[in-house]
């Protein structure tokens, strides 16, 4: 098994995904095609078929193969898969919906905005936990982050109430998206507050969010957060790249802004 896995070729991976005998091989092949970004038409076609799979079912009724196929398609930069992923947003499996929202975010095609907005129906009042499950009724973090990345400015009023959702991770996702859409400091500061959260996973989330949106006034707070240096450096790298966004890449010598220099000093200190 180990050897077969390591020696997988594109043809084998596609064949493994097409066969129906060994569900484990199919599951692995879907992941493999995404991991190695195999974007040839046959791979895409096979993954699209896997999105409608009925054979691979988890004990709680989920569709593990569909989840992996959606994640893989998010990495393959092929616009024709967007309608199929939008269709997955109605799948009864929460994790398929989450994977589809994340994949649609990665593909960057705005045609999915209204389908994502539909999942926010009922607003914060409807965003309650599913009894007996470790998640809410919808993958709100993935939905909000996708809408932010896709630049769906018209969704700002829909998102604002999620800043007060009882789940802190949902609040942070809303703040991240709202900052991306409006560039208003109040939302960046909400992420900075997240760096002070009691729980380490929340502080990590806030670090990732600040790096992703490039909130420059957060640099010092990032450097001082009680978390791993590795993650703080990655977050500051996001800020540094944002601060350099207007530099002409052709210039022989770069003129650094005071912010860029300060961020590099902070990064040096965390190595």
């Amino acid at each position: 098994m180990e050897q077969g896995v390591e020696g997988l070729t594109v043809e084998q991976a596609i064949a493994n995904l097409q066969q129906t005998e060994d569900l484990g091989l199919r599951y692995y092949a879907a992941w493999w095609l995404g991991k190695f970004r195999v974007a040839q038409p046959e791979a895409i076609d096979t993954l699209l078929i896997a999105l409608e799979d009925e054979a691979d079912r988890s004990p709680d009724g989920g569709y593990p193969l569909r989840r992996n196929a959606a994640r893989a398609l998010g990495k393959l930069n092929e616009p024709r898969v967007v309608p199929a992923l939008i269709h997955c947003l109605d799948c009864p499996d929460y994790y398929v919906r989450e994977a589809a929202a994340q994949a649609l975010e990665q593909l960057g095609d705005k045609s999915c905005v209204s389908a994502l907005v539909n999942l926010l129906a009922g607003g914060v009042e409807a965003a309650v936990p599913v009894p007996g499950k470790p998640h809410l009724v919808q993958p709100y973090e993935a939905i909000l982050e996708a809408l932010g990345t896709l630049g769906a400015r018209e969704t700002v009023p829909l998102m604002q109430p999620f800043l007060t959702h009882p789940v802190v991770k949902v609040q942070l996702a809303a703040a991240r998206a709202l900052y991306q859409l409006t560039q208003e400091p109040q939302y960046g500061e909400r992420l900075v507050q997240g760096l002070q959260a009691d729980k380490l996973p929340l502080r990590r989330s806030a670090l990732i969010d600040l790096g992703a949106v490039g909130y420059l006034p957060g640099a010092d707070a990032i450097a001082q957060t009680l978390a791993e240096n590795s993650l703080k450096v990655i977050s500051l790298k996001g800020l540094l790249e944002f601060s350099l966004r207007d530099l002409p890449s052709s210039a022989e010598t770069w003129e650094f802004s005071p912010e860029s220099v300060h961020i590099m000093q902070l990064m040096d200190g965390l190595l």
């Binding site: 790298k237 540094l240 790249e241 350099l244 010598t253 770069w254 650094f256 220099v261 590099m264 990064m267």
Partner: peptide
């Protein structure tokens, strides 16, 4: 990586 290129430029300066 942009961040490494930036750090090289800064070191040169």
């Amino acid at each position: 990586e942009l961040a490494v290129r930036a750090r090289i430029q800064w070191a040169q300066q």
